[in-house]
Simulated assay, not measured.
Amino acid sequence: MKQGTEMKINRLPVRTWNWLHMNESSLSDIDTVLLSRDKPAGGPVLTLPKEGVSCIRGMSTGMVEAGFRDIATGMGPDMEELIRESGTPVEIIRVKKGEKPEAPVKLAFPCKEGEHGLYAAYVYAEEGSSVTVIMEADSARQAGGTAGFQTRLYAEKDARIRLIQVQLLGKEYGYLNDVGGACEEGASIELVQLFLGARNIYAGGSVNLAGDGSRMQTAIGYLGTKNQKLDMNYTAEHYGKKTESLIEAKGVLRDNASKLFRGTIDFRKGCAGAEGAEKEEVLLLGDEVVNRTIPLILCGEEKVQGSHGATAGRMDDEKLFYFCSRGLSREEACDMMARAGIDAVCSKIPDEALVEKVQAYLEEGGRNG
């Protein structure tokens, strides 16, 4: 990334009202230079199932096969340029044809105080295979730094990839999370993401439903507090016939947190019979929170079904009275409601130890307080 330029990320596929300043976001030169410069020692802690899955560690992005490089990601081409120019090594995980290991692939990223690092992992699932990949990023509660991640997923015919990402970084961290995927006929990609820590969160996901009958499902949970900023961009591209997509986000904004969520369902010509839905629920627990949402449906094909909906509301007075009448304080009642959405996402994580870690993070004041 050249010095003196801004990095444009999370761009909408088509521009809306420019005066709202929501079509894209910018990262300053300072952020990108830091990421390009530092090379954290070591790398992720990798755990593989005993059979059916292999990994090539530390491959150069320039040597990665074109099939991966051609996959568009949610944060966009500037993030790809940053990954490439920084020389970030790639973990390439491959699942053999027909293999369906019960144990997940685990990638743990213990981030340190003052560290600025980029990480990349690509997952290739061969025909008829199935795999769950769990990625966890955490640090000390008060730590600061910058952590950037790019994950690309390719699912061959009838393959299934489930990517679970949990972010528990310190309150002064900057966090970038970029995901891109592609599905052949009958394949599916599921994203489960939980964003709890960091001061500034930039996240994007894009899945190309190229094959007939392919599917994409995304479940996002977030908890924004104090000065926290969340900027997200998710796209489902329907190319194949009878493809399906669902983008769901559940979050809580407290104090003076701000959030911008972009959700796009893009029906391309020829995707007859495709169905797509986008849903967002936001609980507002502060008078100074900033909540912005852009639900977008693009339609180049007539025989499709698309829907989107966003609900944002404050704590219901009747509910609050009910909780308080049972001995809870107003703050405790708000905490209970905030945890409900997080717990719904946690129920999708097949790792009891990680779920317990999330609960402990919340209990110990993981609200950037």
Rank of each mutant, 00 (worst) to 15 (best):
G4F: 02
G4N: 08
M7Q: 06
K8S: 11
E24T: 10
S26D: 04
D31S: 12
P44T: 06
V45E: 14
V53P: 01
S60P: 09
G67A: 03
T73P: 00
M79F: 11
E85L: 10
T88K: 01
K96H: 13
P101D: 03
P101Y: 14
V105P: 13
F109P: 07
L118M: 03
A120F: 07
A121I: 05
E127C: 04
E127W: 02
V133R: 03
E136V: 15
A140S: 13
L153F: 07
Y154L: 15
D158K: 02
A159E: 01
R160V: 10
C183V: 13
I189M: 03
V192C: 07
L194R: 01
N200G: 05
V207S: 03
L209G: 03
A210C: 09
G211E: 04
T218Q: 14
A219F: 08
A219V: 07
I220E: 11
G221F: 05
L230Q: 05
D231I: 04
K241T: 05
K250G: 15
K250T: 13
G251N: 06
V252C: 15
V252M: 11
D255G: 07
A257W: 06
S258P: 06
L260A: 06
R262N: 08
D266R: 12
E275K: 15
E278M: 07
K279Y: 15
V282G: 05
L283Q: 02
E288G: 01
E288F: 10
V289M: 02
T293Y: 14
I297G: 03
L298F: 10
C299L: 05
H308R: 01
D317F: 00
L320R: 10
S325C: 09
S325V: 09
A333D: 14
G341W: 12
S347Y: 11
D351S: 05
L354Q: 07
V358P: 03
Q359F: 06
G366S: 08
